[in-house]
Nucleic acid binder design. Structure first.
Lengths: 341, 341
DNA sequence: TTGTAGGCGTTATCAG
DNA sequence: CTGATAACGCCTACAA
């Protein structure tokens, strides 16, 4: 009744354990007939190699860790988009599974000892931040790691992320094509790598076009949730739109687009008639606003799959590219469609 | 440089491996001084028990599996709310971690053999459906399982879910209190346990109040995503609202509220003035509609934590309650607030 | 072609 | 109180 082992199969087949092992996993060595017989018996018994024993023997657990950005503790209101997490984790689990690996979810920990308790061959670090305490812990582990999102400190050699520059430039091109001449960028005042990058990309685009950049840093709320972020953006947008309003706003953070739309409505500005609006990363809430808000799909599934395959390559001893860009796609919606001829 | 083992610690401390093991994990048996010395040396060397070896020896992996409802394959457009998944998985990982366990994400598989490849002590089955192929595979595993969401087939003995009846009754009470006299319920025409339960709860509530129930089953779209569900609900709502419109609609599925709101707008019905609207489960999109839509927070984090603790109790040999209800909370928003004095 | 034996790191048992 | 030893299940080098 208990799970059959190699021994059980060997006993039934009348051969030694070694032969069974070779028959099931080895290349040649075993007589084809014997192999077939053993295979059949193994299948009949429902034999399947114990992953733990195999792991001890091989030093591999066939498991990848995914270090979430979640803080350790009861309250976890510091995640901007659980939707993004859901898409990333399910896609990563799926990709790992297809490569015969498991995916272990690891909460954010700062202690290498806590990580050692968990068994995995490599680690995907989700959105490492500047001065992220996870990085030190991971360095002490001595296992391959891949960052999902960029790591400015360079502590993680391999990074998978969407091409922020292309995303920002694409949105600005789109807004300009719709008639925008003065585009204000709204970015969170946080030490997030993509936020910095977005601002730089915005400035560069403005320089190329010979227009004056106007990047507003939005002070972050105490708790980082979609709601509070929208609220912060609303306040900042009210100030921007009150005097000398631009003809377009580029929201560079989840939740910002919704906040800007609320501010515009309060001031009697109509989107897209009086103000064009777009956000860098797409989210479900942008579909249901009135008007729906233009944004870029960053394909979290694609990011997750790339991170998984990159990590697997590292484990195989290969040398994948150290920076991998994942695809993105602009979703033009009513908020940025100028209706004039 | 390599990870130190018990042997290394034993060598340095000048004792046997067994003594080191007992010093670090055992109760008494070891001389306090020796124990302290071994502890110090282990810490200095950065020793930490190998989870795989410990697993082989103990038969426990200190890992919980979470079987997602995701279909195996590239396309995964059959998930209604990734936000819900994100909240559930991160919370479960956190809860497991706090109990010194890992959380392994398992894609939906129908083959017990595939599951055997992964190492976990128990399994949380997310939203088991009627005729769910996962259930057969899990049954063949012979390990404890807990359902997150109800399992109508009773194949999983322990279930954790919000109290659907209370949710529906609470919403109906709320709508009635706001002046609704004829409430139509919109439910998906799918074999989902909570959908059936919701309808039954609705009928029971109507019977108690002595009013005629009017439950409309919405045919499901080909692909189950938030967008397509909204679209289906919109179509169904148009039919309902066109002739003899009720004064309230209760949307009993993610995405439905948004669809109903769109239908009402098309027909020139104003929410909440001409039509009250509420949905059973909350989602971010409901905050940003105009007006925002009333819904019930089902606290996925709470469900996840309860599922984890229940599974851990089963593993400890305890006998937890077979049906556990998790808390819920009505979030009254503008869509259901009658403005009349 | 097949059997034997050793060892991965940990823990339990038994002897000292 | 401590040391030696066996066993968990698997893989593989070596011997037959």
């Amino acid at each position: 009744m208990a799970k059959p082992t190699l021994r059980d199969v060997a006993t039934v087949a009348g051969v030694s354990v070694g032969t069974v092992s070779y028959a099931l996993n080895g290349k040649g060595r075993v007589d084809p007939d014997t192999r077939e017989r053993i295979r059949r018996i193994a299948a009949e018994l429902g034999y399947s190699a114990d992953p733990v024993a195999r792991g001890l023997r091989s030093g591999r657990t066939a498991t990848l860790g995914m270090a979430l950005g979640t803080v350790v503790g009861q309250r976890r209101d510091d995640i901007l988009s659980f939707e993004w997490y859901g898409r990333v984790t399910t896609a990563a689990a799926q990709a790992a599974f297809e490569a015969e690996h498991g995916l272990l979810l690891v909460p954010a920990v700062h202690d290498a000892g806590q990580l050692r308790r968990m068994a995995f061959d490599g680690l995907i670090v989700v959105e490492p931040g500047e001065g992220d305490p996870r990085l030190a812990a991971i360095a002490g582990l001595g296992i391959p790691a891949v960052a999902l999102g960029r790591d400015s400190t360079g502590r993680i050699a391999h990074q998978v992320a969407p091409d922020t520059d292309a995303v920002v430039a694409g949105l600005l091109d789109h807004l300009a094509a719709q008639g925008a001449t003065r585009i204000v960028a709204l970015a969170p005042d946080m030490p997030w790598e993509w936020a910095e990058r977005s601002i730089i990309a915005y400035r560069r685009w403005c320089a190329t076009r010979g227009v004056q950049p106007d990047a507003v840093r939005v002070p972050p709320p105490a708790q980082l949730s979609a709601c509070t972020m929208s609220e912060s953006a609303r306040t900042a947008a009210l100030a921007v739109l009150r005097d000398d309003p631009p003809d377009a706003i580029l929201a560079l953070c989840l939740g910002f687009g919704v906040g800007v739309l609320a501010a515009a409505r309060e001031l009697g500005l109509r989107v897209p008639h009086d103000l064009l609006l777009a956000q860098d990363s797409d989210e479900p809430a942008l579909h249901t606003t009135d008007p729906p808000i233009t944004a870029v799909d960053l394909f979290p599934e694609s990011q997750a799959r790339t991170a998984v395959t990159t990590l697997l390559e590292l484990l195989r001893g290969a040398h994948p590219a150290s920076e991998l860009n994942t695809p993105t796609e602009l979703r033009a919606r009513a908020s940025s469609q100028q209706r004039h001829g």
